[in-house]
Amino acid sequence: MASVELKDVRKSYGSTEAVKGVSIAIPDKELCVLVGPSGCGKSTLLRMIAGLEEITAGEVRFDGQVVNAIGPTERDIAMVFQNYALYPHMNVFDNMAYGLRNRGTPKDEIKRRVDEAAKRLELSHLLDRTPRQLSGGQRQRVAMGRAIVREPKVFLFDEPLSNLDAKLRGQMRVEIKSLQRALGVTSVYVTHDQLEAMTLADILVVMNGGLVEQAGRPLDIYEKPASTFVASFIGAPPMNLLKLSDLSVTAPAGAETLGFRPEDAVIASATSGLRLEARIEAVEPVGAESFLHGTTPGGRVILRAPGRSQVEVGERVAVNVPADKLHFFDAQGKRVEGQGVSVQI
């Protein structure tokens, strides 16, 4: 158990910089999720925390102590890999016991800890199987088990659920969260799935192009995205972004782009807030709600309507977004605070 702190961490391969100065502070026992598109440097960052990748510049601290020069063997971390990286020639018990044996844990202590972890992960009946005799979900559990028996300072997860099917992924997501809570181990979790990121994170770090776009509590980020990148990356379907120059809206100074979440739009005519007319191009009913794809003078939008939508394809509808649900971004895509009101149809 430890707090983890990154201070202006950089990584370059030759002349290309993969991580361009990242600073994050993760308090003890919290779960930090690094999320971003592929190639944004999130995995590289995780591997630097693990000690698998050399840190070009900056500092990684565990509990205030710089660990840059400490190799992965001595860093006292546990990592769950994307492909699980189970030892194929060892059975489940040995896979979990390997790390303890290497550290000279007494035999009965190893047995106690492995049995306990196996019980927690419902693996007790599989202890003498080899990895190839297990299903994907079971392998994932063994990988988790291998991490928790060690009782390390920090857990690192490198897209641990991306090889599972959607249903299992949802299940394991909940399990990982409750396991992390129960064990109270500081964790860093890398994913490209924004849903996983939102639901798991105590601290969410959105990365893009080797830099942190925004870090904070997931709902804060959802409600106040710091940039158009974050706005379109977090949330599914993403935030609607419209060019202000195509709309006649009174906007804060410097704003170029207007955004609103699909669920904040109401199909109704109103006298305040943003008023738009949208021509509906497609309707996607998903059961509990429907997604309406439409075109407006400012560009394409997606609207979220509860239940089954009565709107037909080809119909023109009036769209209203309350003034306090509008987001504004400047020419560089950075958030601009302030509210605007529309007079446009």
């Binding site: 990592m79 890999f81 492909n83 990286a85 390997y98």
Partner: peptide, 22 residues
């Protein structure tokens, strides 16, 4: 797979040990 070697390193096995056990 390289990740196996890395997993073993994280599991506290030094180079010689990694070689003979993995």
């Amino acid at each position: 797979p390289k990740s196996l070697i890395e997993a073993a390193a994280i599991d506290g096995a030094r180079e010689t040990k990694r070689f003979w056990t993995i």
